[in-house]
Design a protein around this nucleic acid. Structure first.
Lengths: 238, 238
DNA sequence: ATCTTGCGACATGCTAGCATGTTAGCTAGA
DNA sequence: TCTAGCTAACATGCTAGCATGTCGCAAGAT
């Protein structure tokens, strides 16, 4: 019961306007809410009143309800029937599960891709990698993260499976949210770049096992640092 | 309204009553619809009118709408806005993707489990395997499939990840639906049983690579037969 | 002072009806 | 006879209001 009581004032939602997104109202509400949750601008553990969301976004309750249901299926919110909806707390268990899922998917992908990658696909990866190098040189960290995501999305799309990239992103959601807590470490982007180069090298060699090893090493970096954070500051996680 | 003709009766959805399920109305509608889709009692490609579902199940349109939205997220139905909702056609691409996903998850799981499986967990697996043997001996194929599913669910649960079994089941959905088209092959259940024994043996030996190999061989059986069916009778798939 | 108990407020889930965009069928013209 | 355009029915998406179950607070009893 010793919950936070002081921060009632800091409950300013500040959602991105719906006009920034496309699709049906439900999808737009979903996108806006999800972004707010991943941003941590909706604090973990905070109550999420559907009525407030309706008023803030200027829509009725059906689209909000559907959007919240989708978020619940990703464990980003907890719905307690007839009681309330709460933003999911940060949880090391969820981080571990998300990391496990993404690692499983991505290892299977690179293993398959390494066996039959085409020259055109390698060209795409090399181009993305050069883009990353440029962004690092310019110090554009935000752009680098976007290119990073693009690199992984390219890899997954090479399997030919349409829904795989989206599933991987969904799996990674809890890791990504917790990552906001990590302070930027000097030299980390250069390490990331080197890890991407190692993955590309394994794919150029068409060596499935090397590709798996490089991808695994790459993906475990973030989780390792989050585990360390969990032991150093356990109060951050539920 | 006009009376149902004889041919209309063939289109009778025949949903399982909602009282057979638990949870909110949305969840029950979802379960009932999903079962009908997997049963193929809702024909692939058929139009799925929400109004009809409402009337058949005796509920309003909101829970139906939410249930259908969930089905759409699993690609079991296609929603065309302001036009109609259709039961997804059988698709070899979806079968391949579902098989890929489940294989990725389950290989990662057994690899991890093999490293640190406890004696109690092995006991659970052995007990399940003996159950399978008994059901095969009794010729209870339906019961055997249930025990089969339980075997895999046990394996996945040993990772400690809560949502993993459900995700694997979701991934497998398209394979499972297409499997209804396969004629039962004599001796297949005994082969399945042998494959399960091989997985268990690898786990008892705490050999991650052997566990991966055995699991992979097991999971690819169904897909191989479905691929064959796809070349022999391409008209069955979209 | 503490524990219990009852009442009030409230958040979600559901129902019913309106707005919007699509599709199919029919009609008129070439 | 075939095509093009129009109209009418219709399916979904959204809005607004009712039913149901939960949680919190306060007053009273021990």
């Amino acid at each position: 019961m010793s919950q936070d009581t002081v921060q009632m004032v800091a409950e300013a939602p500040a959602f991105r306007p719906l006009s920034d997104f496309a699709g049906t109202l439900s999808q737009r509400v979903y996108a806006s809410l999800k972004e707010a949750i991943l941003d941590l601008s909706l604090r973990p553990g905070a109550i999420l009143r559907k009525g407030d969301v309706c008023e803030a976004l200027g829509v009725s309750r059906s689209p909000v309800s559907e959007a919240v249901a989708r978020l619940a299926s990703e464990a980003l919110v907890d719905i307690v029937p007839q009681a309330g909806t709460f933003v999911a707390r940060l949880s090391l268990d969820e981080v571990r599960e998300g990391a496990f899922l993404r690692e499983a998917l991505e290892l299977a992908a690179v293993e398959e891709v390494a066996r039959a990658i085409t020259e055109e696909q390698l060209v795409e990866l090399r181009r993305n990698l050069r883009l990353q190098e440029g962004l690092v040189a310019d110090g554009d960290i935000r752009g680098f993260y976007a290119a990073d995501a693009g690199f992984h999305e390219l890899l997954l799309s090479f399997t030919g499976h349409r829904r795989l990239p989206g599933l991987s992103r969904t799996a990674w959601v809890h890791v990504d949210r917790a990552r906001r807590l990590l302070l930027p470490e000097p030299g980390r982007v250069e390490e990331t770049l080197a890890e991407h180069r190692a993955i590309l090298a394994a794919l150029e060699a068409r060596d499935p096992e090397a590709a798996r090893a490089a991808t695994r090493a790459h993906l475990r970096q973030v989780v390792t640092r989050l585990e360390r954070l969990g032991t150093e500051r356990p109060e951050l996680f539920a």
